[in-house]
Amino acid sequence: MYTQGLDQAGKSDPAKPGVETKEQLDAFQSRIDAEEKIEAKDWMPEAYRRTLIRQISQHAHSEIIGMQPEGNWLTRAPTLKRKAILLAKVQDEAGHGLYLYSAAETLGVSRDQMVADLLSGKAKYSSIFNYPTLSWADIGAVGWLVDGAAIMNQIPLCRCSYGPYSRAMIRVCKEESFHQRQGYEIMLTLCRGTEEQKAMAQDALNRFWWPSLMMFGPNDATSKHSAQSMAWKIKRFSNDELRQKFIDVTVQQAEFLGLTVPDDKLRYNEETEHYEHSDIDWQEFFDVIAGNGPCNEQRMEKRRKAQDDGAWVREAARVYAEKRAAASAAA
């Protein structure tokens, strides 16, 4: 059990950075190497704390922003059942964001600080959520490909060295497979439907394939944080490894649907037992991350507006609670 407030001074209090001795760093690395979990108030290198705060908070932001492209179709789902299901999925994304904010806070960063960093543009979130959902088929593609890619990334994170993050990931993974099945089932229904429905599904795949592959991050050679994250067992597999696994698994799923993956160089290699594919257009990825994707502005504006519109509610609730506490203390 542990307290999470910033007023709790632990030996590795971010407000009082100390000298990190070689003994401390070696002892920490031994714990990692022995597959021990690091918990909130354990000693940890400042850089370990910082990289986790960055990664977990950006993961949380991605979940919250990710509610927007799907929320876009809540009022236009084809049936009441599909509407209820989509609503449940979007609620799950909110819940996932909350598990992750909660985990990040154990490292000494406040919720307000994380939200402020998101709204100022300082913090990043997953590039995929800067693409629009233009048709109902996109909701299928998002569930199948985007949640699918997320699952590929999140399962190894269940074993990451930081306890609160790994436990949050276990919880998330339990819920995530419904998301992918929901998406794939939409694609199945469309592909078994009219020519027009199947064409809509193909169009969705065409637009979401490459952005989904980019979700795994840059190629290993250019990935800034990877080596240290691997040494600290935050990251268990490289970007390219996970991306390749995703491609190998997903191409077969596309074939079952009778859809064509939009890559004319896609080819199964009998020797390596992996699919070869075209190079990814990394310029697009960096442009979108830098803020120039189709929906970056819209996503941020919506989030800022939600934050601003809700401010009076948060403040009123807080003041009301204080008044009631004072009243019952006086009674």
Binding site: M1, Q4, A88, Q91, D92, G95, L98, Y99, S102, A103, E105, T106, R111, P164, R167, A168, R171, E175, R314, A317, R318, Y320, A321, R324, A325
Partner: peptide, 25 residues
Amino acid sequence: RHAGSVHAADDEMALNNARDTYTRR
């Protein structure tokens, strides 16, 4: 068992938020 944390203005809201965040299933 410990499941995580929530922010809330008061105790009643904390219970409701905990239910919504951690027991959807």
